[in-house]
Every structure is written in structure tokens, then in C-alpha cells.
Nucleic acid binder design. Structure first.
Length: 547
RNA sequence: GCGCCUGUAGCGCAAUGGAUAGCGCAUUAGCCUCCGGAGCUAGUGGUACAGGUUCGACUCCUGUCAGGCGCACCA
């Protein structure tokens, strides 16, 4: 039964609906199930009666009462019977299913058998998905904004892979163009200044200290630099790669814009669009008819000076994404790019792809606080908090978790002092503490990880069943993360799971005189350990045995 | 001016359209002869405002007010 309980239950409910003669008012897809609704309302709940109340012209609760009875009847001849202890119509018209303890014992057994793969699924059917994120211009160290995008993108890719997708992480490298040229000129100018030349440093150049450091290194090592843009771009790219590595983010592919241009793919894409009639010339520039696909205004792709706008290579890049076999494309961007979504979607549509297969996630900014006071940030003056600073101060585990603690589309306040605290105020420690505590008990029990009780049915206490129920919800939470394309729900779940464990621990002693019960409870906390480690692992956070 | 995000307890935040709006901090009262007290139990206190959609709205829509960010032939 296991994971298929959702499908099996829908079958039973559908049979009940038919039995009650209600199937003509809705279809099977209308049967929505909610897992672990409000306390006291069962383990699985369906709102189907409310949905069909109007067309059936009956009160929802009356329908629910009838359906509960018919569903019970349909259940009678089903293998599902032993897992359902009760079906009740409650509230405004919900139909609630109460799972029998045997269901939870089997679930627990499954976690212990399959370990960290217990919730793995083939839901994604190995569909190729590209998650492109960070993609910062190599013109300076990564900021906290990039850090948050990196954490979210990486975790999302992990979750999707766990659910059976072939999710690949990619970094689009803007290794040529205006910004890179400015970067090169910035270094060149600083070098000239170091050599005593009286040259002005323009305001739109990169102001950060790292520019001066680069110039100083060139001077000290007496390097012969021919192309300052290329030199500086590569120099910073290495810094970025190291920063991401230290943040535990690894990309499958670094896609170079320069290579894309050299390959002639941009012209190819333009040729395609031109043949379709989506390009036109005006005021000496080449325009893309994005309004035809819902954009506010048409966009320039080749400027009147003959150079490309940013959109030009991006159109070709996205054409390549689909040509490389990706069925679904996810882009993770900062909020400064939100106005860009409609034109890229237009481009994808013009290229003959369904724009729905392109998802753009806007990761809102993270404001860094110290002792409750915000730290002012200004990219212009080169004064912003970097990924490196946060990493050095609070570490990978805490920073990654903190960046995902809020809904990705919401602003995030990241307090450095809270992040360093080792109190319940800091959820990472709260979760890791639960894990370490379990590890400690297991060490004392002297049991190997593989030892499993064959009498899990001894687990009958409320707190024991509550804990298994919480573990059971893990797979459901991952589906929510997938649906919302946001890993943050997992951070909420892990806090709840840790809390449920702490409550169990406080009420019941694991290591006792009753050997069979000790074995069963040891198995329970071992399963808890597996779930916590798996969840933390998907988020890229470690699970320490000792703290 | 236009667009995006956000207004929930004194503070920081939860609640995939669902039932009794949860948690931490702060504050008040308890729990260690016992597996990690970095924990647990109980008390105080809340949906910015006005309409609308819905069987049902913190959630969706419209407007108002408040805060953050963005609006290039830049990337």
C-alpha cells in the first residue's frame, strides 16, 4: 500500500461516490486529499463533498455523511480496509480518514528498510529539467542575493532529483559584453594609477577593493596582460567558483555566452525568428516583436551601433536549452530581473515552445541584520555583504538553511547574531540537536544502525504514533515543494519533525528494562534520524552526530 | 507614473483556498536521583483598512494606506 495510499483512497472514494449516485456531479480529479489536516480531524481528509454540493443541490455535510457511509461500504472489500480505522464526516462537510496503527507500523518498517531512499519516487519520470541559477556576471564576488539564489536553486535541484527528475544545475556565464569591458577598464585604470599615472577613475567603473588588488597583483608579478577584460573576468570567475564550492553548490555546466556567440547560434536563432516574421528593423535597430506574445513593448535585440542587447544571446541560449533536450526549464533570478520575464517568455513562445515549460522564480532579497539593525548595502560603491562574509561568519549549514527559511518570493531578514546563537531561536541548532540527541542514544544502546525491532506494534503511545505520522508526512511535503517550486516548506517541516521528536523524548524513555519495547523505540528514533538526515541533506545542511 | 514583493501577538515569522490562525524571542508559573535541560509543560497576546469572488479567505480579485525593490538600444 505504502505510497499508493493516495491513489487507493481516491479509488475508494470514487466507488463511494458512484454508490451514492454522486459521480455525475464531479469527476475523479475533483477528489482532493489533504494529509494530516488540523489536529483531531483524521490523517487524510477530502473536501470533495463541498466541491459538488452546489451541483448536487444538497448541504455539504449531508453529502459527506452519505459518502462516509458508502465509502465505508466500498472499503469493506478493499485491501485498504486494515489500514483505515474510521471514516467520519466532520465540520462543514469534510470526509476524514483515520489511519490504523498498523499503517504507521508498516510505514515505519519501510523507512527502516529503505533508509534515506524511503521517500524517493519516480514521479519525475527521469524528465530532463534544467535549473539555471546564480549566473552572476563575473565582475565581482557573489553577494548575499546570489547566496540565497544558490541555496534555493541547489536545494530545489536536490528535491527534484530525489523525486525522479533528471534535474541539472547550470550557470550561465556572461563572459563578454559591456559589464566585462567595464571590469577590464576598471582594472586597467587602477593599474595605471598604481603606476603613478594621473588618470581619473570614472564613477560607473567597479569601485570594489578587489579591483585594486587585482591591479596590484598584475603590477607586483609584472604580468603581461593583453586583454584586461578577459584576464579580470577569468580571475573573478575563479573566485566565484571557489565561493560556490565552499557553499557546497556544484554546477553540472558553466555555459559561456562567449562560446555561444562564437558558435554562430545567435545568428541561427535570429534566422529562425526572421523566417517566422518576428523580427523587424526600425530606427537603425533590430527589434523582436515580443508584443505578439504578451509583452508590454517590443524589444531591441541588435542596437543601432550593431551590437547585441542582453536579450539576443539569451534567446539563443534558451533555444539551446530546449534543443539540448530539456523538457522543463527553471530560471532563478533576482528581483531586479522581474521585468525581464515577459520578454523571455515571449521569446520562448516565438521559438515554438510552450512558455508554460519555462518557470522563472524570483528570489527576493535577503537583508542582513546585526543585532536587529540592518546593514546598509550599496552595489554602486562596491559596499555590499558578500556570500564569503556570511559564510565565514556563520558557516555553510546555518547560512544555507536561513536563506531558505522564508518563502522564496518573500523578503528575508537574516540576522547574523541569531544565526550564530545556539538556542531554539536558531532552528538549525534545534533540528541538529534532535539529530545529535538521537545519535547519542543510539550510541548508548550499542545497537548497529541496521538492527530493527520485529515488534514495532509495541509502539502505541500517542507521542509514538504522532512521531511516525510526522515521518510519514515527509514524502507529502516534498510534493508540496515540487508543486510550489520552493524548498522552504521543507525547512518548516524539519522544525516540526524535530519538535515532535523532542516531545516524544520527553514523555517516553527509549532505553529501558523492557527489551522488546527498547528495541521498538530504538527503531523509532533511528527512523527519525533517517528522516532528519534525508531532509537536511536535500537542503544541503549537515547532520552532526555530536555537537 | 508603471511593475514586482510584503503588511498576522511588543519583536521575528508559520498556516500547498479548508476545520479551533501555529512557533520562537520577550514575559509569567512549573519540570533534571533518569537516555544530551541546546529539551519539555502551562499562561498572556494577533490577521493594516474597505469592498468582492467562494460552501469556505491570512491566502484569490479590486481599491486605499504603509514599507522594500525595480522600471535602458545596461547586464
Amino acid at each position: 500500500m505504502e505510497n499508493n495510499i493516495e491513489l487507493a483512497l481516491k479509488d475508494i472514494i470514487w466507488a463511494g461516490l458512484k454508490e451514492a449516485g454522486l459521480d455525475s456531479f464531479c469527476c475523479r480529479e475533483d477528489i482532493g486529499l489533504e494529509f494530516a489536516p488540523a489536529p483531531g480531524f483524521g490523517d487524510i481528509s477530502s473536501n470533495v463533498c463541498m466541491r459538488l454540493a452546489k451541483s448536487a443541490k444538497k448541504a455539504p455535510i449531508a453529502i459527506a455523511n452519505e459518502l462516509a457511509q458508502k465509502t465505508g461500504k466500498a472499503l469493506g472489500s478493499s485491501p485498504l480496509k486494515k489500514y483505515i480505522s474510521e471514516i467520519k464526516a466532520q465540520g462543514a462537510g469534510f470526509i476524514n480518514f483515520y489511519l490504523a496503527p498498523v499503517y504507521f507500523w508498516e510505514e515505519l518498517q519501510r523507512i527502516l528498510d529503505k533508509k534515506q531512499d524511503f521517500a524517493r519516487s519516480d514521479l519525475g519520470k527521469t524528465e530532463k529539467v534544467m535549473i539555471e541559477f546564480v549566473s552572476a556576471n563575473p565582475t565581482g564576488p557573489l553577494s548575499v542575493a546570489h547566496a540565497r539564489q544558490a541555496a534555493v536553486g541547489d536545494a530545489l535541484a536536490n528535491i527534484m532529483c530525489y523525486l525522479g527528475f533528471d534535474a541539472q544545475k547550470e550557470y550561465y556565464l556572461n563572459d563578454e559584453g559591456n559589464q566585462i569591458n567595464i571590469l577590464g577598464n576598471s582594472v586597467k585604470t587602477r593599474l595605471a594609477q598604481l603606476n603613478g599615472e594621473k588618470v581619473e577613475f570614472p564613477e560607473n567603473y567597479y569601485q570594489g577593493d578587489y579591483i585594486v588588488e587585482m591591479a596590484r597583483e598584475i603590477k607586483d608579478k609584472k604580468l603581461k596582460v593583453e586583454d584586461f577584460s578577459e584576464y579580470a573576468g577569468n580571475y573573478i570567475l575563479e573566485i566565484i567558483k571557489q565561493e560556490l564550492k565552499d557553499f557546497h553548490v556544484e554546477f553540472a555546466c558553466w555555459f559561456s555566452q562567449k562560446e555561444l556567440r562564437k558558435s554562430g547560434k545567435i545568428e541561427e536563432a535570429f534566422k529562425y525568428l526572421k523566417e517566422k516574421g518576428f523580427l523587424y528593423e526600425q530606427d537603425g535597430a533590430l527589434w523582436f516583436k515580443s508584443t505578439q506574445f504578451g509583452d508590454d513593448k517590443d524589444r531591441v535585440v541588435i542596437k543601432s551601433d550593431g551590437s547585441y542587447t542582453y536579450l539576443a544571446p539569451d534567446i539563443a541560449y534558451h533555444r539551446e536549452k530546449y534543443r539540448r533536450g530539456f523538457k522543463r526549464v527553471i530560471n532563478i533570478w533576482g528581483p531586479d530581473h522581474h521585468g525581464y520575464i515577459s520578454r523571455l517568455k515571449a521569446a520562448v513562445a516565438a521559438l515554438g515552445q510552450d512558455p508554460e515549460t519555462l518557470s522563472v522564480l524570483i528570489v527576493q532579497l535577503a537583508s542582513i541584520f546585526r543585532e536587529g539593525k540592518p546593514i546598509e548595502m550599496s552595489t554602486r560603491r562596491g559596499q555590499y555583504i558578500t556570500l564569503r562574509e556570511v559564510l565565514d561568519e556563520v558557516g555553510v549549514d546555518v547560512s544555507r538553511f536561513f536563506f531558505m527559511m522564508r518563502r522564496t518570493s518573500s523578503h528575508l531578514n537574516f540576522d547574523l547574531e541569531t544565526a550564530k546563537k545556539q538556542t531554539p531561536e536558531n532552528p538549525v541548532y534545534y533540528i541538529q540537536y534532535a539529530y545529535a540527541r538521537i545519535s547519542s542514544i543510539l550510541r548508548q544502546a550499542g545497537l548497529s544502525e541496521t538492527a530493527v525491532s520485529d515488534e514495532l506494534s509495541l509502539l502505541k503511545e500517542k507521542e509514538e504514533i504522532d512521531l511516525i505520522r510526522k515521518l510519514w508526512q515527509f514524502a507529502y511535503i516534498l510534493k508540496v515543494c515540487l508543486k510550489t517550486l520552493d524548498p522552504y516548506m521543507l525547512t518548516v517541516y524539519l522544525q516540526e519533525a524535530a519538535e515532535t521528536f523532542h516531545k516524544f523524548y520527553d514523555c517516553h524513555r527509549v532505553l529501558g528494562t523492557d527489551q522488546a519495547l527498547t528495541a521498538a523505540r530504538t527503531s523509532l528514533i533511528n527512523a527519525t534520524r533517517i528522516v532528519l538526515a534525508t531532509g537536511l541533506g536535500l537542503l544541503g545542511v549537515s547532520a552532526p552526530e555530536r555537537m
